[in-house]
Design a protein around this nucleic acid. Sequence first.
DNA 1: ACCTCAGATGTTAGCGCTAACAATGTTGCC
DNA 2: GGCAACATTGTTAGCGCTAACATCTGAGGT
Lengths: 377, 377
Amino acid sequence: MSERDGRTPVMADVARLAGVSHQTVSRVLNGHPNVRTETVVRVRAAIEELGYRRNPSARALVTRRTNLLGVLAFDSTLFGPARTLAAIENAAREAGYFVSIVNLDGITREAVVEAATYLVEQSVEGCIAIAPQRAVVEALADLSGLRPLVAVEGGEGSGLPVVCVDQEGGAYTATRHLLDLGHRTVHHIAGKRDWLEGEARVEGWRRALAEAGAPVPEPAYGDWSPRSGYELGLRLAGERARGAEVTAVFVANDQMSIGVLRAFHEHGIGVPGDVSVVGFDDIPEAEYLTPALTTVWQDFDQVGRASIDVLLAELSDGGGPSALRPPVTRHRPGAAASRRGGTPSTDASGAVSSVRVVVPARMRIRHSTAPRLPGPP
Amino acid sequence: MSERDGRTPVMADVARLAGVSHQTVSRVLNGHPNVRTETVVRVRAAIEELGYRRNPSARALVTRRTNLLGVLAFDSTLFGPARTLAAIENAAREAGYFVSIVNLDGITREAVVEAATYLVEQSVEGCIAIAPQRAVVEALADLSGLRPLVAVEGGEGSGLPVVCVDQEGGAYTATRHLLDLGHRTVHHIAGKRDWLEGEARVEGWRRALAEAGAPVPEPAYGDWSPRSGYELGLRLAGERARGAEVTAVFVANDQMSIGVLRAFHEHGIGVPGDVSVVGFDDIPEAEYLTPALTTVWQDFDQVGRASIDVLLAELSDGGGPSALRPPVTRHRPGAAASRRGGTPSTDASGAVSSVRVVVPARMRIRHSTAPRLPGPP
DNA sequence: ACCTCAGATGTTAGCGCTAACAATGTTGCC
DNA sequence: GGCAACATTGTTAGCGCTAACATCTGAGGT
């Protein structure tokens, strides 16, 4: 199987073998309508015989389309980001796009710029950033070279289209659940400061307490790690030992919850006997911890799908200073997902485009919370 | 900043602005020696002013180098694969390569073929497969279109270069540790059948027992999930209740260990009081479980670095039926990492090339194991 | 002054593909 | 039968870049 002795066959080789012009081969490959069935068959056979594959670089050069999407990730080792990343990759592939990823080293502005440069140099057509921190989103918003860009878990006000889980709602539900159990108030071990997800969870927790007229304890900020959960759990156990009323804790993620559970255990505080605990993420381990952890499940797959949908919609809306805007029309126009949530989505005319897709979070109730008799401790 | 009204600037625009030919611009960009410093400065300034970026497609078309590496992953949500993936991405970026990832949907042969096709269509220069299962490695070995290819956690006999963690050694050490504590034997809850990592861990466990002349109980096979750990833990607890001597368990990963811990807890079996448990992976949670889990740590970062090193070495060795073999010499020749482990690495002449890089695993001893008085139960 | 040679630059010819247009053959309709 | 409309194919011209070769300088040796 070799014209051009040994070299990868090119379109002209296929054409020669099929007895047509290279352009006809191109037409077959691109599914143009006006090619005789018999010709199509012959060309297909030639392609098969030579094991021919189109050269994507040549194609990209002339079509001005790379078919490549970039994904910016920050610590894709954490459960949430890892799941999101996988979901995005899947959705992109289904939409016929390739995916190139960059993991940010740090959360500095320079790291963001560096990563963005890296993607731009690959001529990505668009980009999705798993950007859980305010600083990152801001840096991204400033970087006008990387467009269109969808921020996952992005937060409002950046001007970027955003897809996120309803963190606030999830936190609200979790807190509400604890209050409904009879707890007078709920403590909160929060995520890392400056992380948007963490802040949203604080918001939801606060709103539930405020609505119920419950006292609002000072939240304790961790860094998402089991270690920090453990440390803050120890602190809470100490407060309790000194007489503070600590009967329910909403922890901003499951990993920290594990540390909290450990700290309480060391102090002889029973869960859910003495204190109820609710986590966030629903990691696979949650159900099998001792006690099984009540937690909040997030629909990462939908986040992945929605972010691709939004990105593709931005892409087909055209406009924007992207380097790769093609002259031809785009595929799947208007494929943007259901836009929900109480945020201003001024997108009817495609003008301001503060797109914001909110994906649900749902409680998974397990044995780490128990009903509590009303009355002072 | 626009020649060519609004369109992305090309090399010719830079050339015009700098008052040189486009070829001189190319030379500056590629660091050719014979360009006057003054010219370099002028060109650089023009590039800066126009915000010019090379078109990678055009470049790839003529150089026949895409600078792209493909990574095939299977369930990159699990801790190990996620860490490995991140490490590979980092190492690739440091080596100046882009990375495109595909997540396999299933472990069927078709899924492998599909993913491979997907990567070939992108003209990756080489590929790394995180291929933890025998079936996948075999499918990969048959697929001659995707070369060079490095199998991470690949197992022997496939003919592919392999980078892997010393699973067998880690398992041996873990089992040995339990035996040294005074246990007469060690039970094993194994990983999913057909997973090479799981099999290697069974091997190591078996070797330690055999060496010590300890009885070898039938291993119980799980599927890496906390749920399966729980189920098999219940079974073990049942056996123990019926009088079997179960005092030590080596579990093939930490996630299953969590399920085991839960099962034992439900049955009133104390860990490490009644039974010692050792896991594998050293997930961040391990230290904060109750009890803290003794486990085996794997150097994923080194796996990532080594796999890129090996791939780059294969790339520069030339040969192989890759579609993209460039006519020019490659960078970083002979960068392959330390080759260790007791496997036949017939690579001196670059001939058979059964490269096998083994990366260390180390025990992390914590409170889930305790010394045991000798004697029958 | 002549020639040589290397340094610095420009010119030309593709890489493999698709878009645009041109050139056929084919059908249908009055 | 003639002509328009269409279906089918081929031809040509780039996309933006690098490699190879061609050209032009000026320094150095004799």
